[in-house]
């Protein structure tokens, strides 16, 4: 087995997994915060995004224009700047938020950032339902609620599911910027390891691998969903 020793030495020299194991607790805390931030802002931005999509599609010109301006402003400025603005501006505008933990502020900023993208996805989903479907539902005398519940939303949801999962993957990656406003997320855990042990390989490669693992899980989920939904509801034929 002696010929393996140089190999083992080389591996430990490049990537000393024992040091990473020492920081397992920090990494666990980082992953928790990252997933927490991503999950919370996903849920919130879906709600806000649905609202925005409804405003965009509403017949009220003023509301629709306001939603449009919001969407364009968010799309045309960097996320990092938006996070900084929320982080510094919120305590000035609403003094009660000065005592909030940074994670909450980060979730709020990510929600505000992701909601317009969600709104665009949801809007395209609603508009992707063929006109004839709604006319058919009207013809058999369905009410607005019934049309939405049984005809439009299931098809819209099936259509946008892959896009939603893609946006979720982007959201998970975006949470990495929260480390810059001192949220202890995955990147912050890697930073901590690097600054205490001066081991950038162990610190940042581990972080990259963990993010990649999360991405692969989402990718698998999206493949699964695409296969599952590829039935009649998948209205490629009607689009």
């Amino acid at each position: 087995m002696t010929f393996l020793e140089p190999v083992a030495d080389w591996i430990v020299g490049v990537y000393n997994f024992r040091i990473v194991a020492l920081y397992a607790d920090e990494f666990a805390r980082g992953i928790t915060n990252t997933l927490l931030a991503a999950g919370a802002s996903l849920a919130l931005s879906l709600i806000l995004g649905t609202l925005l999509a409804a405003l965009r599609l509403s017949s009220n010109r003023l509301l629709s224009a306001l939603a449009e301006i919001y969407i364009q402003v968010i799309r045309s400025t960097p996320l990092l700047l938006q996070i900084y603005i929320v982080y510094f501006a919120l305590p000035l505008l609403v003094p009660a938020t000065a005592r909030w933990p940074e994670l909450w502020i980060g979730i709020l900023a990510l929600t505000l950032h992701t909601a317009p993208y969600m709104a665009e996805i949801i809007r395209s989903g609603i508009q992707s339902v063929a006109r004839g479907q709604i006319e058919g539902a009207l013809a058999v005398g369905m009410t607005f609620r019934q049309r939405a519940q049984h005809i439009v939303l299931p098809q819209a949801f099936a259509n946008i599911m892959p896009a939603l999962l893609g946006q979720t993957a982007i959201l998970v990656k975006d949470t990495s910027l929260l480390s810059l406003i001192t949220v202890f997320d995955l990147v912050a855990a890697g930073m901590l390891l690097n600054s205490e042990r001066i081991k950038p390989n162990e610190g940042f490669l581990s972080v990259a691998v963990i993010y990649f693992a999360i991405y692969l899980l989402l990718l698998l989920a999206s493949r699964f969903v695409e296969r599952k939904l590829a039935g009649p509801a998948w209205n490629k034929a009607t689009a």
Binding site: K173, V187, G190, P200, N201, V207, Y215, L216
Partner: peptide, 21 residues
Amino acid sequence: HLLRGTPFLVQLYVVYFVLPN
């Protein structure tokens, strides 16, 4: 997939800290 799966910040840290190392 490798580039899509990792945040830009992490890529930057890898290029800036890990590769010179």
